[in-house]
Design a binder for these strands. Sequence first.
RNA 1: GUCCGGAUAGUGUAGUGGCCUAGCAUGGAGCCCUGUCGAGGCUCCGCCCCGGGUUCAAAUCCCGGUCCGGGCGCCA
Length: 434
Amino acid sequence: MAIMRTHYASGITPDMNGDTVTVAGWVHEIRDLGGICFLVLRDREGFIQITMVKKKTDPDLFDAGRRLNRESVVLVTGVVKEANQAPNGYEIIPEILNMLSEAESPLPMDVTGKVGADIDTRLDSRFMDLRRRKMLAAFVIRHHTLKAVRDFLTGEGFIEIHTPKVVAAATEGGTALFPITYFNREAFLNQSPQLYKQIMMAAGFDRVCEIGAIFRAEEHDTLRHLNEATSIDIEASFADHFEVMGILERLIHDVYAHISRQCEPQLSALGIELSVPELPFRRLTYDDALDIAHQHGHDIEWGDDFGTAAERAIGGAVGEHYFIIDWPTDIKPYYTHPNDDDPRYSKSFDLMHPRMELASGSQRIHSHDLLRQRIAACGLDPDGFDFYLKAFRYGMPPHAGWGLGTERLVMTMLGVENIRDVVLFPRDRKRLSP
RNA sequence: GUCCGGAUAGUGUAGUGGCCUAGCAUGGAGCCCUGUCGAGGCUCCGCCCCGGGUUCAAAUCCCGGUCCGGGCGCCA
């Protein structure tokens, strides 16, 4: 028996009336009316009704069909028949029905959307959760988002690179790392490609990007944090922070425009009308943002980061994507370039969606001596950064870059509440499988 | 790290001391039904997280545990 599908469900149209086709997929629903029995078969692209009439269908086939378990995998060969009463105006009258894999019963969760399920239940049976149309739609959009990102950055002259995820030391200090054993040595999962993409500036690649996993061992427990996330990173030589901000806002605009054009079926499955944000995004200075926070009653000292509540107040006041620029140098990582005229401020920015931070970036320090000094000032040991600092000693161009959270980009675009719903198999503090 | 909340059939829920032999929906089994499209009708199946305590009486109150969800912090 050759397992050969001739059409996806969506590939069958009324003008194929009389054609013999083979479809394959999951038994979504069975409606047995006695003398007539409807099977709804689901595949990646849609649904197709299989109609069996007792008096016309082979008795063995009829009986096998009506006794199928929901979610079993079947291969059905039959004739397309135009039928006004059928869901899309057509159905398949089966001639051969092969059950390829019988689903056990009861199912661990409902796939049809009749009954909800808790996030924990859903993640425990994620493969089945992902059979739900809305989940598929979200991940198709995630795919097209990353494709749009790659196409855009390629067009801007970026070379995609892959840097090590197993590293010897912390990238930025601060964030907790996952320790692992590397043969007989201690190593860590990388929290960011930051140091490596900067080293690539010394390599003369000029513009690099990386889309890859980053790991944070923080024990946070929120709807917008993951311990394993996907970061979109760029680094560009002979550029300042304003130039890479321009790239970032055009990228966001471009992604929204692509998704709204190319993912209409998925957006409508999710009930979303996507509006493309207008360029340029507003630029708020840190001091401006601090004023807004103060106006909303948030008591934040100059030099402190905004808390979640203040961030939401500012986001609510702006109402669309915006940048916060000119951050105090001391709350940004050591590699952030201070302002030339007032070193208390830095050449840095965060890209904000009203709901949360999406990206942060800056012009980087390219002076070896200043960088070494800043590492020490941040309480880190410069000797641990030799492999990094070495790249700054033999010709390092001025450069700037940013890191953008893929999951946050997708979740804010789609209005998804829980970041876990835009990751296939999310890693959070509690969950290590599936 | 810290604070708050939760755990009842496979799934989602109702039930704050006796009216609970635990209700509802979905699901499963069986029967009826030739156009369903969240089909309908009838019958049946299946649940109070674990341990201890209070009480005449505990799903319900108390203590401990386990697991889960969420807020904040930190960050993307």
